[in-house]
Write a protein that binds this DNA or RNA. Structure first.
Lengths: 341, 341
DNA sequence: TTCAGAATTGGGAGCGCTCCCAAAAATTAT
DNA sequence: ATAATTTTTGGGAGCGCTCCCAATTCTGAA
């Protein structure tokens, strides 16, 4: 039982509180003899220092917060979030930090949670998953509160903020280039919401690729999805009359919904409509489609976010750090690459 | 900025530290005049009491831990976990607790995390998602450490532990009864791993329903899945030669994989093979199958777990509390109910 | 008007650590 | 051998709160 204190251990080991503290924290300048004696006592008492006392005295909590704002519903429909959470949780564990999770859905949630995430004494720093318009408020408040902060995803404003992201424009561009290279010309897209940076950026990459190949932009080939399976399904139904021969979907889960719509319409993938998705989550390979998709390193993304945040905590928040991670096109079945060549 | 302390606020409001503390904690016995004066100062300084100091002094952290052991990989393949997490996170927020998340995959993870979850001063209590053999070790250690603890899912041993669960046997039983009632006789099952309580219990319910209707048990109609889509797919492939006319799958996600296998084999759902799943996650209704399934109240389950844990924290861990939540069969398309009658 | 009793307020002690500085012990140089 | 360093050890102060008890102020009944 850990109702023991440093003082108890000190008494049992016949040393002082300070020495035990040094041993516990792995500090030098303790003789081996004493260190081992203390270590023994700790070992067989099962002592663990009190976290609150340590935090109070050291002004460090060794706890990081993960804030998932306005994405509470997505958290369950899009496997992206669980994967990101996994990476972050793993990294926290690796670096001996504790992870506090905050799902904030409404403005009231935000107000209720803000005091807890902004206050020192609970969290050393915060990772905010962002990319949505509505997330900017909490980011601004966190910046004002001077909290060490890493945004996962490019924020809308606040370029004085550290963030880590992928190059969505470039990634989408290369996905669509791939389709063009395979000979498709009526290429549609199911974009993310225009209220999100990823929605905007991935669509921009799509447009850029078309423009570069002088393929005229056809508005009827663009539908906005919401990063859900059913959203992809609905978007595809609105696209079908325009007769696309290929579709770039801004997420795997939307691609899956879209493919379902295509098949229900009696068409084949990729023979009638080819697909490229985005994310490369396990479901892309598992599903009855072999989805060609843009791989983004979700787990590593989370790990990197933690690393940057710890850097901020330990070395100060200025200047802001910006990390762009690499993506890669993974060619599987749905783009029809094997048919065309 | 919250580098302010109680003392600062006290000075500004012309009262004592104790009075500010009373106001902050909503205690009675403060005159309205003084209370409002203090409240004003707090308001326009943006003061928040230091969490670590409060924890140290009160021996309560207002933080709960959620431990997802041996399920790190499931966390992403089975949407059940994100949903559970959502319920727990929501409830924590509602009751003004902070949620700390621990994903433990390996034995090393467990050892690394254990000191943090068991030690007072960080967590007031812990929720452990369980049901797997491998989870018992950490549960035992937590019990020994005298930590307020709620197990989500029936644990294997430790009936001196509080848990909350659904009646898996009964739920599976009624699902299979439904199939029998529709006239199916070669009913197979894709069970969960026998290393999990849900795997065991849901299979038991299946067997019970068969026995009650004097349908002989045919071993070739039972396949063990692993709660993944691909596991369900593989299990179904091994079931197909036995010619089932209906299948009870122990989770929705496995049912989806199984349905994919059936369709790839050129058979129809529910005409050739009917299905009942388990969970009733959104994907059951969204998917291109309209999955008949056992609804379990995942989010409420999480909320209940938090409520029980808070009860434990505030009123002592003895006697252990046991809560069994209701399930309900949701009839959609895949069981063929509409065809048969 | 006076005083018991209730309501309010203030301050000390303490929660269990870290950090700093001074004291003690061990080491090396003279 | 002694003096000058260096290494190790101990203890005080303090982190910012809560909790308890005593001091003060306010009631209203005698």
């Amino acid at each position: 039982m850990s109702d023991l204190t440093l003082e108890d251990i000190a008494r049992q080991a016949g040393v002082s509180r300070s020495t035990v503290s040094r041993v516990v924290n792995g500090q030098p300048n303790v003789s081996d003899k004493v260190r081992n004696r203390v270590l023994d006592v700790i070992q067989n008492t099962g002592f663990h220092p009190n976290a609150a006392a340590r935090t109070l005295a050291s002004q460090r909590s060794w706890t990081l917060g993960l804030l998932l704002p306005h994405s509470v519903s997505f958290f369950f429909t899009d496997p992206y979030y669980p994967h990101l959470t996994k990476g972050i949780a793993q990294a926290c564990n690796q670096y001996d930090y504790t992870l506090a999770l905050f799902l904030v859905g409404t403005k009231e949630d935000e107000d209720k949670i803000f005091p807890r995430v902004s206050r020192k004494g609970l969290l050393d720093g915060v990772i905010v998953q962002s990319g949505h318009h509505g997330d900017q408020s909490i980011i601004g408040r966190l910046v004002d509160a001077n909290m060490p902060l890493v945004v996962a995803g490019r924020p809308f404003r606040f370029d004085n903020v550290s963030y880590i992201d992928i190059d969505n424009i470039q990634a989408a561009y290369s996905a669509v280039r791939h389709l063009i290279g395979l000979g498709y010309r009526r290429i549609g897209t199911i974009s993310g919401p225009v209220s999100s940076t990823v929605g905007i950026d991935r669509k921009e990459g799509y447009l850029k690729a078309l423009a570069e190949s002088s393929i005229p932009f056809d508005e009827s080939l663009v539908a906005e999805g919401d990063f859900t399976e059913s959203g992809g399904y609905a978007a595809m139904q609105s696209l079908l009359p325009a007769g696309p021969d290929a579709v770039f979907a801004a997420s795997d889960i939307m691609a899956l919904g879209a493919i379902r719509a295509v098949r229900e319409a009696g068409l084949r993938v990729p023979e009638d409509v080819a697909f490229v998705g985005f994310d490369d989550l396990p479901l892309a390979a598992l599903s009855n489609v072999q989805l060609t998709t843009v791989h983004q390193p979700v787990v590593q993304f989370g790990i990197k976010a933690v690393e940057v945040l710890i850097d901020l905590v330990e070395n100060g928040i200025a200047p802001p750090r910006h990390v762009i991670m690499d993506t890669e096109l993974v060619v599987r079945g749905t783009c029809g690459a094997s048919l065309r060549r």
